[in-house]
Structure formats: structure tokens, C-alpha cells
Design a protein around this nucleic acid. Structure first.
Length: 331
DNA sequence: CATATTTGACCGGG
DNA sequence: CCCGGTCAAATATG
């Protein structure tokens, strides 16, 4: 769910971007169209996902408030400025997408079944009524988990876990007792840069190998780029050419050659986090890299920004350095 | 060369 | 001590 909301956010952001740049963009039809396509793709993905998860459901869950709560807690917090009228309206109590965010703050793992078919279910492992007291210092900042069941993509071959617009990196797999299928553990690929602690575990449902149970844990502090893969077959699969958002003030010529260079985060405040408005910074129209499926890495203008700010010319150690830094850096 | 996945080791809670 | 979750070395892939 968070993923979906994030998608929607992304769409909103892109929309706002487009709106603000509309005047200047009318001169540039191609850019305009690609931008529109991007927006529709993002929203389309979100819509698809929603449809897949909660087809007809009308759970009398206090969805609205949950969403808001969620927005308040954490996500919005970091996005501060993001709460503009547009989104306020979108997420108030009635949103066009019938979003049902099932936060797992309180309550014992309640499970909501939708009369439709696919069921949304809140696993709530963080605070389940099961273990009464012993919830020791493990759960840091209320790292909530929530589980959803997602149908395996009906696409041709591999019944791989459904795409959700984020890039994940697998870091483990375990056999689970009582389950016939192993459980895979993923974390956000961008953890290294943003300390994004979003994680998810995917496991195929025993009796229905066609259904995946995806448990998300933690919020994304990173923001996927609009060029992110998220290759959902349906809907508009138009030419995903990189949408360059024209040269705004942040037109940084620099281009990193190797991988990402390390940078010094100096202050602990995240000035590098998302919300940098712009979408892809892509130059001209080089190679349209955004083909589906394995387009893995997406670019984040932020990175460049970071590069610029605390340059760091030298490359050498990359991820690892940052990684370790991020790790012991207590939140 | 860099980053992703695999897979057994390892760790810590219950 | 078992089990689920994570690490990390080895391996894979471009």
C-alpha cells in the first residue's frame, strides 16, 4: 500500500511539475507529451495495483483517517511541503482511487476481507496481540509491517513477485517451516544513499502458488524517479523515453563517470532527500534506457545534486563506505 | 568494473 | 535451542 501511495504521490508531484512548467512547455510538444505519458504511467500503475489488491472492496475501515495518519506519520513528515491543497484533496476522506491504507499501528492483527475477492490483510507483526509484553527494544521507531496479498503477474513466464514501482534488492531467502515455498527478503536498492530502510518479504502462498504474500516494512525515504522501471504490461506502455524536465535552475552539467561517488552527508538533516521536484535529468535524448523489466537503476537528480554539493571528486570506495556510515549512524 | 543474486553462516529473540 | 531475519562471501551478469 505504501508503495501505491508513493506512486500516487509521485504522480501528483509530476503533475504539479508539469503544471508549473506548462507555459514554457507548450513550445515543446514532445517534452510535453512525454511528461504526460509519464504521469499517466505512474497513475496507471497505481490504479492497476489498487485494482489488483482491492477490487471492489468497501471495507468500513476508517480508511481516510488511516491514510491521513500515515501521511502525518513519517511520510509527510519528511515531505513537509508536499501537503498542498491538491494532495489534501486527494487524500482527504474521499479519494478517487479508493485507497485503503491499512496502517498497523494499533489493534491486533485484524484481517479485512473484501467481498470482491482478493483480500487485503493486515498482519501487523509489529504489535500483534500474540506476544503480549516482550516487545523489547527491537522495534525502533514503530517499524510497522503490513502484509498484502498480490496476485502474481499474469505475464508470460516467471511468476515473479509483482512489480511495485520500487527497486528492490534481494538479500536473503529462507525456508519457512510449515510453508512450502521459501520466503525472500528484499530491501530497497537505494538504501545506500538514502538510508532507505524499506524492506519487504515475499512468499508464495501455499495453496495458491499464483498469489504472493508481500509484507512491507518501513517507509521509503528515497523517491523513485519517474523513469523507474515499474513495467506493468497493461495500460500505456508507450515509448518510455526519458522525460527531460528541461533545464531548471538545477542544471548540473556534471556527470559521474563510474558509479556514484561517495559524499559527506555533513549535517544529519536530509537535505538530499527527494522532493527536488524535477523528474529525470536526462540529457538530450541519448539512449532511451527505460525499457521494461531490468532497467534496474534509475537516475536521481538528487544524486547529482549531492555530488555537486559535497562533491567528493575521488571515487574509490563507493557503496560500502556510505553504507557503513549509514549503519552506525543512529537515526 | 560495478552492482545484483545466491546461499550457508551467523545472530538474537522467544 | 529452534527459527526467522540478516550478513557476507562467492558467484553471476551486464
Amino acid at each position: 500500500m505504501e508503495e501505491i501511495l508513493s506512486l500516487i504521490f509521485e504522480g501528483c508531484k509530476l503533475t504539479r511539475d508539469l503544471e508549473s512548467k506548462l507555459p514554457s512547455l507548450t513550445e515543446n510538444p514532445s517534452l510535453l507529451s512525454s511528461s504526460c505519458e509519464d504521469i499517466s504511467r505512474v497513475f496507471g500503475t497505481a490504479a492497476d495495483r489498487l485494482k489488483a489488491q482491492a477490487p471492489s472492496s468497501q471495507p468500513e475501515l476508517e480508511a481516510g483517517s488511516s491514510v491521513q495518519e500515515w501521511l502525518r506519520s513519517g511520510y509527510t513528515q519528511s515531505m513537509t511541503m508536499a501537503v498542498d491543497p491538491f494532495q489534501a484533496q486527494l487524500f482527504s476522506d474521499k479519494n478517487p482511487f479508493d485507497v485503503r491504507l491499512l496502517t498497523t499501528r494499533n489493534a491486533e492483527g485484524s484481517s479485512v476481507r473484501s467481498r470482491g475477492g482478493v483480500e487485503l490483510q493486515v498482519a501487523d507483526t509489529s504489535d500483534a496481540g500474540k506476544s503480549p509484553v516482550t516487545r523489547s527494544r527491537k522495534r525502533k521507531d514503530g517499524a510497522q509491517k503490513h502484509t498484502i496479498k498480490a496476485a502474481a503477474p499474469r505475464m508470460g513466464n516467471t511468476e515473479i513477485p509483482p512489480e511495485d514501482g520500487f527497486t528492490w534488492r534481494k538479500y536473503g531467502q529462507k525456508e519457512i517451516l510449515g510453508s512450502r515455498f521459501p520466503r525472500s527478503y528484499y530491501r530497497c536498492t537505494h538504501k545506500s544513499f538514502y538510508g532507505c530502510n524499506a524492506k519487504k518479504q515475499v512468499q508464495r502462498v501455499d495453496d495458491d502458488p499464483n498469489t504472493f504474500e508481500v509484507t512491507y516494512c518501513g517507509h521509503h525515504t528515497c523517491l523513485m524517479s519517474s523513469t523507474a522501471p515499474s513495467a506493468l504490461p497493461p495500460a500505456i506502455t508507450t515509448q518510455p523515453e526519458p522525460i527531460e524536465v528541461e533545464p531548471v535552475q538545477s542544471s548540473l552539467p556534471l556527470r559521474r563517470r563510474h558509479s556514484m561517488d561517495k559524499f559527506e552527508p555533513n549535517t544529519s538533516t536530509d537535505l538530499r532527500l527527494r522532493m527536488s521536484g524535477d523528474a529525470a535529468a536526462a540529457e538530450g535524448q541519448g539512449t532511451s534506457q527505460s525499457q521494461a523489466r531490468d532497467g534496474k537503476e534509475a537516475e536521481w537528480p538528487v544524486v547529482d545534486l549531492a555530488d555537486a554539493m559535497f562533491n567528493s571528486g575521488s571515487s574509490t570506495s563507493s557503496m560500502d563506505a556510505i553504507f557503513s556510515f549509514m549503519q552506525d549512524k543512529d537515526k
